[in-house]
C-alpha cells in the first residue's frame, strides 16, 4: 500500500468554505424568516395591541443596542481588512472591540429583560395569561425573537473568540483567513437580523 493511496490529500478550498458559510446564512435567515412571518400575521391582526405593547420597550436601549451592533459589524469587517494587510496587532484589537460590543449588547439585553421580568412580563409568568391576545402575542414574540437573536450573538461570540486565538497564534494570517472571514460573515448576519428586529419591535406606531 503506497503512502499516497492511504493519505487523504489535505486540500484547501476557501471558495467552498465561504460558499458553505453563505448557505448556512441562508438557512439562518429563513429560520428567522419563519418568525418574521408569524410576527407579520399577528401584527396585521392586532395592530393597536402591538403598538401599545411596543411602548413598553425603551427605544433608547433599543437604539443604543442598534448602534453597538452596527459599530461591531464595522469593526469585525475592519479586522478582516487588517488581516488582509498582514496587520496582526490591529486585527486583534478590532476583534477585541467587536467582542466587547457583543458583551455590551448582551449586558443591555439582560437589563431590558430583567426589567420586564421584574414586572412579571415573561413567558410562563402569572401575569402573562391575564393579558389580552394581542399583548400576549406581542410579548411572546418579543421574548422568542430577541431570545433567539441573543443565542445567535452568543454563537457569534464563540466563533470570534476562536478567531481571536487563531489570529494570535498566527493560524489565521494574510495567506489563510477564511475562518475569520466566515466568523465575520456570521457576525454580520446577527447584525442583519437586528436591523429588521429593531424597527419592528421598538418602533411601531
Amino acid at each position: 500500500m503506497s503512502e499516497k493511496a492511504i493519505h487523504v490529500e489535505e486540500h484547501r478550498d476557501d471558495e467552498a468554505s465561504k460558499l458553505g458559510m453563505w448557505l448556512f446564512i441562508f438557512t439562518e435567515l429563513l429560520l428567522f424568516g419563519g418568525l418574521f412571518l408569524v410576527y407579520s400575521i399577528f401584527r396585521a391582526q392586532y395592530p393597536t395591541e402591538f403598538h401599545q405593547s411596543s411602548l413598553e420597550l425603551s427605544v433608547t436601549i433599543g437604539a443604543i443596542n442598534t448602534v453597538v451592533l452596527l459599530f461591531s459589524s464595522m469593526t469585525v469587517a475592519m479586522a478582516l481588512t487588517a488581516i488582509q494587510k498582514n496587520d496582526q496587532k490591529r486585527a486583534l484589537i478590532f476583534i477585541g472591540i467587536t467582542l466587547f460590543c457583543a458583551a455590551a449588547f448582551l449586558f443591555n439585553k439582560y437589563f431590558e429583560w430583567g426589567h420586564k421580568i421584574e414586572h412579571g412580563l415573561y413567558p410562563g409568568s402569572d401575569l402573562m395569561p391575564l393579558l389580552d391576545r394581542g399583548h400576549l402575542l406581542y410579548f411572546s414574540l418579543y421574548f422568542f425573537m430577541t431570545g433567539l437573536h441573543a443565542l445567535h450573538i452568543i454563537i457569534g461570540m464563540t466563533l470570534l473568540i476562536v478567531c481571536y486565538f487563531k489570529v494570535k497564534s498566527k493560524n489565521i494570517n494574510d495567506h489563510d483567513y477564511v475562518l475569520l472571514e466566515n466568523g465575520a460573515l456570521y457576525w454580520h448576519l446577527v447584525d442583519l437580523i437586528w436591523i429588521f428586529l429593531f424597527p419592528l419591535m421598538y418602533l411601531i406606531s
Binding site: E15, K18, T81, Q84, K85, D176, Y177, E181
Partner: peptide
C-alpha cells in the same frame, strides 16, 4: 491564489 477576497479600506 486561494484568497480571492477583496480588501476594503478602513
Amino acid at each position: 491564489a486561494n484568497n480571492t477576497t477583496h480588501t476594503i479600506e478602513y
